[in-house]
Design a protein around this nucleic acid. Structure first.
Lengths: 136, 136
DNA sequence: GTAGATGCAAAGTATTTGCGACAAG
DNA sequence: CTTGTCGCAAATACTTTGCATCTAC
């Protein structure tokens, strides 16, 4: 898994430092969407000398290199996740904070169509659903 | 127009101060999506003694009262617009920063359906399209 | 060897808050 | 009157940056 991010770094000419390898590894192994603080905590357990500035610099670099995706969900800090081929959107449980990833082709298509209707080519988009669990 | 927000305040039991009236009036008359700084600028032209803290407090209050909608588009400051019956989403021109509002029933329906599929009832959602103008 | 990365602390932004003075209902 | 609001400045939260040192290539 971690190979993956490291390979991407090579491909993009991003220098592979120990710090970056650790951050890459942690993000690869994470199935949630940590914010920088949380990522810093996890990173610190492996190498306590890494500074939070480096974490900020690295996630920004990785984002610009198309390795990580940055999300700014409601209420505060930016959160990150590894960017893979399959695009997905997010459904956020407003009570628990749990995040569910989903894919819906029809919505993707519709978005293209709307942009097109106004004379635009879509370069990015953001869809977040906020919901509460239904009683069964 | 401005009557509108003032009426909503009365209905919600929100005390109507001079400052709030001014902010309400400006938001009613604005067709764009000003951030707090910009709103503060506009407000200052009418009453230069209003502080930015009051502007922050008021937009937050208005948001909680369902009078304004808060948007956190890419890259920085929160922006506000008057909340009216008709819900709409946003298409943002990434070159010029221009914001186009659009409504699409099909997308709204699809979102409900997706939430439902995962056992959730939708309480809120956010859809933002980022695009560049096509050559004709 | 050299360009770029790191750690630290200091500086930026955007936003919130404590507090005494003040105003709406 | 009394409760909530305002203006101010100080505080907070998140993120970025200058600089001297260090490291990957």
């Amino acid at each position: 898994m971690s190979e993956n991010i490291e390979q991407k770094c090579l491909a993009k000419g991003v220098k592979l430092t120990d710090q970056r390898k650790i951050i890459a590894k942690i993000m690869s192994e994470s199935n949630d969407h940590p914010d920088v603080d949380e990522l810093y905590n996890r990173v610190s357990k492996i190498d306590s000398k890494i500074s939070i500035a480096t974490v900020y610099r690295t996630v920004k670099l990785f984002e610009e290199s198309g390795i990580l995706a940055k999300h700014e969900f409601k209420g505060g800090k930016a959160r990150y996740e590894e960017l893979n081929e399959g695009h997905h959107d997010h459904l956020i449980d407003v009570k628990s904070g749990e995040i569910i990833e989903f894919v819906d082709e029809k919505i993707e298509k519709l978005q293209e169509k709307i942009a097109d209707k106004y004379g635009y080519r879509l370069v990015d988009h953001k869809l977040e659903l906020y919901g509460v669990k239904k009683k069964p």
